[in-house]
Design a protein around this nucleic acid. Structure first.
Lengths: 115, 115
DNA sequence: GCCGTACTACGACGGCTGTCAAACTACGAG
DNA sequence: CTCGTAGTTTGACAGCCGTCGTAGTACGGC
């Protein structure tokens, strides 16, 4: 129940757990770049990653766009830290709202990578 | 992707189980009309439904479009039966290729309906 | 054979989306 | 203060996508 209004300094606005919309989550994950970002975050196992640490073949401005979509869909959390912006998966919030969803998608992404 | 398979007469072409692409599945489900169709099919519990049996507020031509997207993504199976076209979820195939994925999405769709 | 039902095909259109380049801001290191 | 790194903003553009209306096809019932 993290309200979208009370945010620690440096944390960018994000939807509360009970405000997550399935349609937005699926739309966010329907793009290959964003799906890859989420997969790499999942592989990082909770470690925060800055925006340029991903193997996605797009420019910085496109990356910025994707990270905003992911954050506004509630998939990731973003915190400013120095000149970097650290990203982490909202694993717990998503598991609360949509049990099993993120796990099965990440697992599917892994088996799908071996197309 | 058009599948080259032994298809029974009346069955429309669909991707094989090992050809299912996660990106296509997620894209197909990212639309509210299509998500609803899948949810209603899941609620039907395996019963085949014709195209006009869904509570989706779009015209027939748009419905046709959505059903084709769902079939080409491998989510549903379509069989001609008289003047109707019967639709069913490819539950087993999806569970084989992406274990738990469809279940968690359908479950999420149900809890999300209580917006 | 004729009609109604179920679905399809074809354009068309408006909006959304992913992408980029270029110019810009913010911050830390030295 | 200066410079480099990290990320943002803006504007532009092409392509896709959901939607519709209209016209058309296929099949079963009568």
């Amino acid at each position: 129940m993290t309200a979208a209004h009370e945010e620690p300094p440096g944390r960018l606005p994000e939807p509360a757990t009970d405000e997550l919309r399935l349609e937005c989550v699926l739309h966010a994950l329907a793009d290959p770049s964003r799906l890859r970002i989420v997969a790499e975050l999942a592989d990082a196992g909770g470690t925060e990653l800055n925006c340029l640490a991903f193997e996605v073949p797009v420019t910085k401005s496109t990356l910025t766009h994707h990270f905003r979509v992911l954050r506004e869909a509630g998939l990731i959390r973003q915190c400013r830290r120095g000149t970097s912006k650290m990203n982490s998966l909202r694993t717990a919030d998503l598991a609360t709202r949509f049990p099993g969803l993120l796990d099965s998608i990440v697992t599917a992404a892994r088996t799908d990578a071996a197309h």
